[in-house]
Design a protein around this nucleic acid. Structure first.
Lengths: 218, 218
DNA sequence: CCTACCGATCGGTAGG
DNA sequence: CCTACCGATCGGTAGG
């Protein structure tokens, strides 16, 4: 009986895309739609009406969920950063005993490319390229999350620096490495033919980055 | 006598900033003002009225010089790229006989930082971060200029790769190196106390970049 | 969350 | 290049 309830409820709703889960968390749908549109068109070039339409709402309805457009932008960024931090901890959490610093950096970079270019990768690019559109108080909130994310990189880079594999000073090196990675959003086009090709490409990018930044162990 | 002519003419004009050269090339003034505002606020967040006000025009007057707002954006980018190419050729034009590839790359990077972060450095950052706002036909024009600018880098990187000082494949290395450099627009704050400090800092950035990307000559 | 709506702003134009 | 203006769009709100 309860198995039949779902489709019945879905049919009873106003016209929505067929098969869309309609379990009431419209707020999340707004955030995802906003992320996608903000990434493609930019924050200023995207109207709240467009976002509403994409999730099947009327023009004023997003403001039931968010006080204003800026708050929606902030929500996109917070959502993206929290996911990125959680996934980074899961993937690169603590060093295995026999793991080299180079290997730890490889994992961090590989995960970062995933966050930038992989599936569901609209949130972080929006955060990187729409920073300017936040209010100052909002920037502070995001800065804290960004610091959390970057904190995992510092000891790894420091270890590589101490070992002579990273010559540049750690502070500037971190900024330049993130630049090299983050810029890929501007030029990388995933080979969409199949997901395996995309994964392979991100692996290649990771290897290239390591070759570029690190020297061989002396 | 001719020494007195200048202030007299300036006084006779309608209210403009004191001492401003008013020699009629209003088009250039619009381009410079647009570059500054586009960089600070973004293209979409800057109105043509703001630009007009900044150069002392009325709201409709920019459209006497430019067909529409997008054309003004294109003019900013073209202006920036032409200057950057000319200055790059002047600074890093042809290799001196005894000049190493590493030294040639140093010059290219140092000049690039100057274009990104030095004085009068509004144009290229606008080009880098407002690409999305161009019409497709306009993008083609800018792409050609960008290819000209980047052409000078290829043989240098290739030579370094052949010599084993640059391990990563040249194509991807170029993209990542430009990323590392271009991203500095997001975090670099020039020490404005005096111009010497700024120059020194850009020199430091250049040295760090070389340390990061290149290995010692085997 | 929809309906109905508002004030503000924006890019752009005609006509001189 | 200014004056005067327009149509369109936008973020946001009241009231249910």
């Amino acid at each position: 009986m309860s198995e039949l309830a779902e489709p019945k409820r879905a049919r009873g709703r106003p016209k929505k895309t067929e098969g869309e889960r309609d379990d009431g968390n419209r707020r999340q749908a707004l955030i995802s739609a906003a992320a996608q549109l903000f990434k493609r068109q930019g924050y200023d070039a995207t109207s709240t009406r467009e976002i509403a339409t994409q999730v099947g709402m009327q023009s004023g309805s997003p403001f039931y969920h968010f006080g204003n457009k800026q708050d929606l932008l902030l929500a996109v960024m917070v959502e993206g950063m929290k996911q990125a931090i959680a996934r980074q901890m899961a993937a690169c959490g603590q060093a295995s005993p026999g793991q080299s610093a180079r290997e730890r950096l490889r994992q961090l970079i590989r995960h970062h490319f995933d966050v930038l270019l992989g599936p569901d990768s609209d949130f972080i690019p929006v955060m990187l390229y729409e920073w300017r559109s936040l209010a100052p108080a909002q920037r502070k909130a995001i800065t804290e999350l960004k610091d959390d994310y970057e904190a995992a990189w510092i000891p790894v880079l420091q270890a590589l620096h101490d070992a002579g594999q990273l010559q540049a000073p750690v502070g500037l090196a971190r900024l330049m490495i993130f630049g090299a990675l983050n810029w890929s959003v501007q030029w990388y086009e995933p080979a969409r033919k199949n997901s395996r090709a995309t994964r392979a490409s991100l692996d290649e990018l990771t290897d290239t980055a390591l070759q570029l930044f690190l020297r061989d162990k002396p």
